[in-house]
Design a protein around this nucleic acid. Structure first.
Lengths: 130, 130
DNA sequence: ACATTATATTCGGAATTAGGAATATGATAT
DNA sequence: ATATCATATTCCTAATTCCGAATATAATGT
């Protein structure tokens, strides 16, 4: 007895598609890729204001698409489900668009976070100034 | 030199996802399945008003997702791209929903269209009353 | 304690969208 | 020509979403 179309299943699919579809959210998902990214990072890469990025991340997180991990000042976001890339690939194909990258995002523009400036972060080489 | 993320590619993917995401449109896409359906049909199956169905069909058609074929009074709609079902399957999986059928939709509720009442439509058995 | 940096949240008005009512169009039948 | 049925379209407003500004919180440094 396989489950058939229930309104709640439809609603969940609808919600998923709605929540990822705004262009800035697609940009964020692609920027995160298979890696992780902090807010300042996405701010630097994508050029949106911090509060705006944060809002979009919240929406994606509440939808269960992103997980976050705090590391000191930084809050790193990553995809909660891998299937998202297949979905985007599929959508791109239908839309006749080639746009999907799934690398962990080597960042051209930089912020001060550990990922952008690894030499200066969490490093045992940097001694406390006590 | 493979094409990279252009804003227009992103925009197309965004538009695609947006246009299919409303629940009534998902219902319509699933109801059409791999077959075709006229408006009165979808009206009967889904219970939305005619004008509303028509509006949603227009939106999907303008987005290039549906083709239509006129047959007398009836206007039959079918999916313009097959990939749509893979997309929906994918979305359902991520949303932890099982809902996708891709049969040509055997209709429980009926309207007077050739597909619902095949015995009375276009049939050589029904002679004109001249 | 105070400053600074990273991030989150709240508020509100502008812009957009949803969807109902009414009506128009197009095909067929009489 | 008129009626009827299937479908499309226009109009309008309530509801929603977008996104900026301002502010709050949380961690770290000095």
């Amino acid at each position: 007895m396989t489950k058939t179309n229930t309104s709640s299943s439809l609603a969940r699919v609808s919600e998923l598609l709605q929540v990822i579809s705004p262009e800035p959210r697609l940009e964020i998902l692609l920027a995160i890729g298979t890696g992780e990214a902090c807010v300042c990072h996405l701010e630097a890469i994508l050029g949106y204001r911090q509060a705006y990025i944060s809002q979009q991340l919240m929406a994606l997180r509440e939808a269960g698409l992103l997980d976050s991990r705090r590391d000191g000042k930084y809050n790193f976001y990553r995809l909660a489900k891998t299937g998202i890339f297949e979905l985007l690939q599929n959508a791109a194909q239908i839309a006749e668009a080639n746009l999907i990258k799934r690398e962990p995002a080597m960042h051209k523009k930089q912020c001060a976070c550990p990922h952008c400036a690894p030499a200066f972060s969490n490093s045992i080489l940097v001694e406390p100034t006590h």
